[in-house]
């Protein structure tokens, strides 16, 4: 049960990655710092899930993953629920709903955003830094490659681990120093392989014409459509709601 990108063509999938990122970011802030009643939060969550369902988001994995934070939810419910005048189930439910809200938004965001969309959002966040010479695009490519090779290298560590244990390595030693030495049979081969891999990748990229100095064009093109306009109202509303107490004075 892993939350990962599931391709789709629904309304939410078609949003501009910048809109997606901003809405998700705003919604997470909203769920963490509102002071609405449990019923209202529950309604908002239900509405959110309904929109997701209607636009064809694969919700099952996200909802099933809530089990993973089950323990956290119980602890939060207990801490928030007990107040000076005994246990108040309403407070506990509200606290739990807030966390579930944050979790669902983050889960859905990761389900509907491909790696390139995540990178696009990343890059947009870093773009202001490009003015002072920060290589935003190269940095984004590094992120993509890191994410791309993460599972590959994990699989490799697992293979090396099994083979070295079979040879007799004891990889979980005692104290800090001894555990560092115990990890040598795992660390050295993994690093060596990672360096070899990086060298091969660099060559393959160069053979496909990659140069840092070159003017590269961009294939991914994200349109800013009518739905984006509607969706963009969500963060605006949220910021209005959050800033309201300061403005009414």
């Amino acid at each position: 049960m892993q939350i990962s990108y599931k391709p789709g063509s629904g309304l939410l999938h078609r949003l501009n990655p910048l809109t997606k990122g901003t809405v998700a970011f705003a919604a997470i802030i909203f769920f963490s710092v509102n002071n609405l009643s449990g019923a209202v939060i529950a309604t908002i969550i239900a509405g959110f899930l309904l929109i997701c369902k209607l636009s064809g988001v694969a919700l099952l994995d996200v909802i099933m993953s809530i089990r993973r934070i089950g323990l956290l939810l119980v602890i939060v419910a207990l801490i928030q629920g007990f107040s000076v005048d005994g246990f108040n189930p309403m407070l506990a439910v509200e606290a739990v709903l807030r966390i579930v809200g944050v979790f669902l938004v983050a889960g859905v965001y990761l389900t509907i955003s491909s790696q390139s969309e995540l990178t696009c959002f990343w890059e947009a966040c870093f773009r202001p830094l490009a003015l002072i010479g920060f290589p935003a695009r190269e940095f984004a490519l590094i992120m993509v490659i890191a994410v791309r090779f993460f599972p590959v290298i994990l699989g490799e560590i697992e293979r090396i681990r099994m083979a070295q244990i079979a040879r007799g390595a004891r990889l979980n030693g005692g104290g800090l120093l001894s555990s560092a030495t115990a990890l040598m049979p795992l660390m050295i081969p993994t690093l060596t392989q990672a360096v070899i891999r990086a060298g091969e990748l660099a060559q393959a990229m160069e053979a496909r014409g990659y140069r840092v100095s070159a003017q590269r064009t961009r294939y991914q093109r994200f349109r800013f459509g009518f739905i984006d306009l509607i969706a963009a109202s969500v963060p605006l509303l949220i910021f209005y709601y959050l800033l309201r107490p300061f403005m009414s004075e």
Partner: peptide
């Protein structure tokens, strides 16, 4: 290089 098939096909063309 890319994380999806389409992105990888596009990488060389972007270069």
């Amino acid at each position: 290089v890319g994380t999806t098939v389409e992105e990888d096909l596009a990488f060389g063309l972007e270069n």
